[in-house]
Each structure stands twice: as structure tokens, then as C-alpha cells.
């Protein structure tokens, strides 16, 4: 709606400019002014300045975390190191968690299907632990973070190809409690 109004306004200006350019003669006589109308009631006051976007997630909510922070980091094949992309996401997670100190999280370590079950359980535990340690290094209280390994038991992509495997090798920060809604 907003953008529509903007476009209309811009069009009006262009038309006005065009009129100026092509019609230098004197304007025709104006019609009599319309009767004065009652002014509309003033609009409600704007919301308090908390950077709230009327259509975005409520701050401190699950959606806020999911949309504005990011809940998963992705690992390379057979790896549990955090690359710079992962670290950026975890920095956002840590800052968010500092803003909402009542929130508790469970970090799940996940693996792709191209490993054996028991080794993957161990590898998932390593991945979850690496994520937890990084968040703790950024100041998040370790008592707020639990970890769990699902090995290859909780894929998020159903395919059996490189893309699906890459998505399924992840550390998943799940909010357990303490959100605002």
C-alpha cells in the first residue's frame, strides 16, 4: 500500500513537470474552491521507538530467533570445525541470547546419512559441543545450554544427494523456554 502511494506521488510529480515543460501558456481559470470539510481525527500516536516492524516477528520470540538470527550452522563432511559463516551466526545467537537472558536452549548435533549410526552419534555430540563451547566463549552462561546428539536420526532434507547431506550436517540451536511469546 505504502509503495503504491509512493509511486502515485512520483507519477503526479512527473505529470506536473511534464505539464510545465510542454504547456508554457497561462493556466485556465480555476474553479471555485470546494466547501471546507471537517478534518479527520488525528492518527493514533506511532508505536514506541523499539524498532518494531509491524509485520515482523515479535522480538524475543521463536520467530524472531529463527528469522533474524538463524538457528542452524552447517558443517563440512566428517568435520566439526566452525567456519567464519558459522561463527557469524553464532555471534548473532550469542548476542540475542544475551538480550533475552531467560531463554534456555538445546543444541542438537546432526549428521548426514553417509556414516554409520554409532560413529554419527559420537560425531553429532562433538558438533553440538563445539557450538555450545563457542556460545559460552561469547559470554552465554553454560547452564542455559543443553546438548543432544541425534546422529543421522533427524535429517531436515529428505534427499540422498550432496545438497541434502550438506543441510543435514548441522548444529541446531533449539529454544527450549524463556521466549516472550
Amino acid at each position: 500500500m505504502k509503495s503504491y502511494l509512493k509511486i502515485s506521488a512520483a507519477a503526479a510529480v512527473l505529470i506536473a513537470l511534464g505539464a510545465c515543460a510542454s504547456q508554457p501558456e497561462a493556466p485556465p481559470p480555476v474553479e471555485p474552491a470546494p466547501p471546507v470539510e471537517q478534518p479527520a481525527p488525528p492518527p493514533p500516536p506511532p508505536p514506541p521507538p523499539v524498532a518494531e516492524q509491524p509485520t515482523g516477528p515479535v522480538p524475543g520470540s521463536l520467530d524472531d530467533f529463527r528469522v533474524n538470527v538463524g538457528e542452524r550452522v552447517y558443517f563440512d563432511l566428517n568435520e566439526y570445525r566452525l567456519d567464519s559463516d558459522d561463527q557469524e551466526i553464532l555471534k548473532l545467537q550469542a548476542a540475542w541470547l544475551q538480550s533475552y537472558p531467560a531463554v534456555r536452549i538445546m543444541v542438537a548435533g546432526n549428521c548426514d546419512e553417509r556414516g554409520t549410526r554409532e560413529y554419527n552419534l559420537a560425531l553429532g555430540e562433538r558438533r553440538a559441543s563445539v557450538v555450545k563451547d563457542y556460545l559460552v566463549s561469547l559470554g552465554v552462561d553454560p547452564s542455559r545450554i543443553d546438548t543432544i546428539s541425534y546422529g543421522k536420526e533427524r535429517p531436515i532434507a529428505a534427499g540422498s544427494d550432496e545438497n541434502a547431506w550438506a543441510l543435514n550436517r548441522n548444529g541446531f540451536t533449539q529454544i527450549v523456554s524463556g521466549t516472550t511469546s
Binding site: 554409532e118 552419534l121 559420537a122 555430540e125 562433538r126 553440538a128 559441543s129 563445539v130 555450545k132 546438548t147
Partner: peptide
Amino acid sequence: FAPRFSRDGESVLLTQAEHGNS
């Protein structure tokens, strides 16, 4: 995880992961 009985059935071997290490 990864449990398995000993051959005499009197014990169970298993893995424990603590702080990410199994």
C-alpha cells in the same frame, strides 16, 4: 550409546559422551 554385552553376559560395554568426547 553403542551398548553390547560381554560374551559372558555379565557386563555391558558402552560409550559415554561427555563435553563432546566419546
